[in-house]
Simulated assay, not measured.
Amino acid sequence: MNKETKKQEILDAFHFRHATKEFDPNKKIPEEDFNFILKTGQLSPSSFGFEPWQFFVIENQQLKEKLAPAALGAHGKLETASHFIIILSRTKKDMTYDSPYIEHMMRDIQKMPDEVYHGMYEIVKKFQETDFNLLESDRAMFDWASKQTYIALANMLTAAAQIGIDSCPIEGFNRNKINQILQAEGLLEERRLEVSVMAAFGYRVKDPRPKTRQNINEIVKWVK
């Protein structure tokens, strides 16, 4: 396949993708296809490669029923989507430069030798203390981590579209209530995780209206 053909396939996927409001409950995404979508989330980039996310694939029907009143944006999707994901961000407990989680990521996952680890430790410390002022509040740190989960979300939405699977990103929920429900289920690791965003995947019931966007010249400025 030549480059122009590949580019057109990618653009076609972006035109195909839309925020699907209702899914066909009788159509199930094949396991291998959904694992592929999850893999694109796993392989997504993150600041310093710290992967501040977890993906909960919600299959438990009782949990879905508990979530529904606190997630109005998921109405019609929790009930009909083939797969429903809650994407969680790690909190300040895990994301501070001197936390066991960050040391684990650098030493055990990224396999940094001692001299590299100690140098990176100082870089991350400065970044969090002064460059981005992330230590000033729990929310500042969470928002930094949460922004990164949207990179994984976007990649999963696009990957799904490229193989003909529909999706819907969801922010319409009460964050505190969803965290309380997940906490009661024992899923938040002593509040080391909190909900960031949700997404539903499946197959559309009906085609959407044509996609609309601003003209490319209205949103792009070449600064020379």
Rank of each mutant, 00 (worst) to 15 (best):
Asp207Thr: 10
Ala140Trp: 03
Tyr101Val: 06
Ile37Trp: 00
Ile181Leu: 10
Glu171Ser: 13
Gln162Trp: 03
Ile219Ser: 14
Lys3His: 10
Met106Pro: 09
Pro208Leu: 05
Val124Gly: 11
Leu182Asp: 03
Asn2Val: 03
Asp143Met: 12
Gln62His: 12
Ala68Val: 12
Ser146Lys: 10
Phe201Val: 03
Leu153Phe: 05
Ala145Thr: 06
Ile216Gln: 09
Arg175Thr: 10
Ile10Glu: 07
Gly119Leu: 12
Ala140Asp: 14
Glu218Leu: 04
Ile109Glu: 08
Ile170Ala: 11
Phe34Leu: 07
Trp222Ile: 15
Lys177Thr: 06
Lys77His: 00
His75Asn: 09
Ile87Trp: 09
Ile109Phe: 12
Ser137Phe: 08
Ala70Tyr: 03
Gly41Arg: 02
Asn217Cys: 08
Ser89Glu: 04
Glu190Ile: 00
Asp207Asn: 15
Thr130Trp: 02
Ala74Met: 05
Val57Glu: 15
Phe50Tyr: 13
Thr212Trp: 11
Ile37Ala: 00
Lys206Arg: 13
Gln110Gly: 07
Arg17Asp: 02
His118Val: 02
Lys28Met: 04
Ala160Ser: 12
Leu11Met: 11
Met106Ala: 08
His18Asp: 07
His83Ile: 00
Ala152Thr: 11
Gln148Glu: 11
Lys224Trp: 11
Phe14Val: 14
Pro113Ile: 14
Ser44Arg: 02
Ala159Gly: 13
Glu22His: 09
Val195Leu: 06
Asp143Trp: 05
Gln61Met: 05
Pro208Ala: 13
Pro113Asp: 14
Gly49Leu: 01
Lys93Glu: 14
Leu193Trp: 06
Ser99Asn: 06
Gln8His: 12
Ala71Leu: 01
Thr40Glu: 14
Leu11Ala: 08
Ile163Leu: 10
Ile37Gly: 01
Arg90Gly: 08
Asp166Phe: 09
Lys21Tyr: 00
Leu63Asn: 05
Pro52Cys: 01
Ser46Ala: 00
Gly164Cys: 06
Val57Tyr: 06
Ile151Gly: 10
Lys6Ile: 15
Ile85Trp: 10
Thr96Ala: 04
Leu134Ile: 07
Asn35Thr: 01
Asp108Met: 08
Glu31Lys: 07
Gly186Ile: 03
Glu22Ile: 04
Cys168Leu: 03
Ile219Arg: 15
Thr5Lys: 10
Gly41Tyr: 11
Pro52Ala: 05
Trp53Pro: 01
Leu134Glu: 09
Arg175Lys: 12
Met95Ser: 03
Asn26Phe: 07
Glu59Asp: 11
Ala71Thr: 06
Lys3Glu: 14
Thr20Ser: 12
Asn133Thr: 02
Lys224Cys: 11
Glu32Lys: 15
Lys206Gly: 00
Gln183Val: 01
Glu185Ile: 02
Lys21Val: 03
Glu185Asp: 02
